[in-house]
Simulated assay, not measured.
Amino acid sequence: MTSSVALVINTYQQAHFLAASIESGLTQTVSFDDIIVVDDGSTDDPASVVARYPGVRLITQPNAGLAAARNTGLKASTSTYIVFLDADDLLMPNAVFLGLASHALNPLAGLVYGAHRRVGRRGEPLGGKVYSEIGVDAFRTLLTGNAIGMHATVMYDRQKLRDIGGFDASLPRCEDYDVYFRMAAKYPIHSHPEIVALYRWHGQNMSGDPSAMLKWVLLINDRQRAHTANTLLLEDERLLGRRVWVRYYKDEIVSDLKSGYRSRIALLSFARSLRFGKIAALEMGRWFIHRVRTHIRTPGKIAFP
């Protein structure tokens, strides 16, 4: 394994987590060739944390969002492969080794990924391994859900990521899901079942607003219509994927309401649930209309749910 690998750690107001994420990158069984921290306009002094680690580079920029911060790191790196880590998350010591091994077995892949596990604020386990295999048709698999799940499990071929345009800075959420689709449309995606990252759940994660997440994940789904509109099976699966996401975030919104009821954020949780209900109702109507049209075009072949 002679290929070079870079780690980009993006941070925004998370200096209290940053040291642990840097150290998880420094304690790999196969070392990163470059570690870059991108400070996206923080006011909590991440520079003082990075200064403790000689060889770790710091790039600062005005606040521009997660996707823009990742693009900054992508442009600054020159490695063969690249991994992106949020400052509040952690890598397992074998992450680089397993990513390189998977790329070696799949040299045409645009990205490879592994499993992850969710942990709490202090690193305590919150569940078992989370892993879904991508299958032989990655694009089709992604239509009905995000099989990859956690971005830090991914090791990209850096040049292929640049070739597809990197991350869409217009997306405030779900920019990784958007990249997966664009990568799958052009290059193979492969996976392995070993845990390579820990997703720290601390109650202030960007994914903690289910209604906002649903809004943006459905926008990413909308974008795929350019690839699915002329294929009945793919279009059917794209719209099925919208129902899958509504069901997934329904559970999240119920959990959000329960926790909000017990705390001081009950009003916020209720507002999120109203936004979710509006989106969900529109999606159910969209799905019903699609099934009616499909039944008319192919009577007797497609049953109503």
Rank of each mutant, 00 (worst) to 15 (best):
W245D: 13
V56R: 08
R162Y: 00
G165V: 02
L198H: 13
A147P: 01
F304K: 04
I220E: 08
K75F: 00
T72D: 02
L219K: 13
H190Y: 09
L143G: 08
L232V: 12
Y156V: 06
L214W: 01
F288R: 15
A229W: 12
D209F: 12
K129Q: 11
G260T: 02
L274Y: 08
L98E: 10
D137V: 10
A271R: 09
L219Q: 10
I35G: 00
V83M: 12
T72A: 07
Y248K: 07
R182C: 03
Q224H: 03
I253R: 03
D45P: 00
Y187P: 01
A64L: 09
L232C: 05
Q28K: 05
L105I: 04
S273Y: 05
D86V: 04
T78A: 15
I82H: 07
I134K: 00
D163T: 13
N106Y: 09
W287H: 11
G300M: 05
A69T: 02
I302V: 15
H16A: 12
R293H: 09
T43A: 14
E283C: 10
H116N: 13
D45G: 02
K129V: 12
I164L: 03
K160C: 02
T228L: 05
P62Y: 00
V83L: 09
S269L: 04
D34S: 14
E124Q: 11
A266F: 15
P210Q: 13
M92N: 11
P46R: 09
A67H: 00
L274V: 13
Y199K: 15
S102A: 15
R162C: 10
R52C: 10
N10R: 13
R122S: 14
A47W: 01
R291P: 06
N71A: 08
D222K: 08
G25Y: 06
A303F: 15
G241E: 07
L171K: 06
C174V: 10
D209G: 06
I296P: 00
D168V: 01
S42E: 03
N230A: 10
Y180K: 06
I36Q: 08
T141S: 14
Y12S: 09
I35V: 14
P305Q: 05
V56F: 02
L171N: 02
I134D: 00
A229R: 14
L274P: 08
P193Q: 02
A51P: 01
W287P: 03
Y249E: 01
L214S: 02
Y113F: 15
L233F: 14
